[in-house]
């Protein structure tokens, strides 16, 4: 049995829980319910050559990076970094959380999600900023947990990265 632990990292209210719910159960709720501690979900992903169970650790978002409990990340093989595309400051939060995780447990594959792409009129991240990050070779997705746009793509991409 092939299973991989994946951690969802990002500031609060960027949509980590909603992305997991969209990916695992194909549902979305408008109601914001903050996560405290961590919730664990599982989803099987069939790749061309194998099937992998992703064990998704949906970590509480933080408004204070200092209170981030990096111990949850032990054993993870990949990260889903989530940014709220309508709140520019959440990009720095996601990148800092990744640094913290990698400082503790070493480098690991990740995908970077700019979430809430359905809120086009409130979008706060410039294309040039996103392109600059793409030039680093990062896997970047503009996702909407509401519509489901690019959500599966992002998780499948990470699944194939962590099983290489």
């Amino acid at each position: 049995m092939l299973q991989k632990k994946i951690c969802m990292l990002g500031g609060f209210a960027v949509g980590k829980t909603s992305l997991v719910r969209r990916f695992v159960q194909s549902i979305f709720s408008e109601t914001y319910l903050t996560t405290v501690g961590v919730k664990i979900d599982k989803k099987s992903v069939a790749l061309p050559d194998k099937t992998v169970d992703l064990i998704l650790w949906d970590l509480a978002g933080e408004d204070d990076i200092g209170s981030f409990r990096v111990s949850y990340v032990r054993g993870a093989t990949g990260l889903v970094l989530v940014v709220d595309g309508t709140r520019a400051a959440t990009l720095a939060v996601a990148l800092t959380l990744r640094e913290r995780a990698e400082a503790e447990f070493g480098a690991m594959p990740f995908v970077l999600l700019f979430n809430k792409s359905d809120l086009a009129d409130r979008w706060a991240i410039s294309d040039s900023e996103i392109n600059e990050l793409r030039q680093l070779g990062w896997q970047i997705y503009l996702t909407s947990a509401l519509s489901g746009e690019h959500v599966d793509d992002a998780f499948r991409q990470l699944a194939s990265m962590v099983t290489k």
């Binding site: 632990k5 405290v36 961590v38 664990i40 409990r69 054993g75 993870a76």
Partner: peptide, 17 residues
């Protein structure tokens, strides 16, 4: 998954649903 073997015991994870 991935937690064991754990080089730094004791190990604590709070509020895991």
């Amino acid at each position: 998954e991935g937690l064991l073997p754990c080089p730094e015991l004791p190990y604590h994870m709070a509020m895991v649903e």
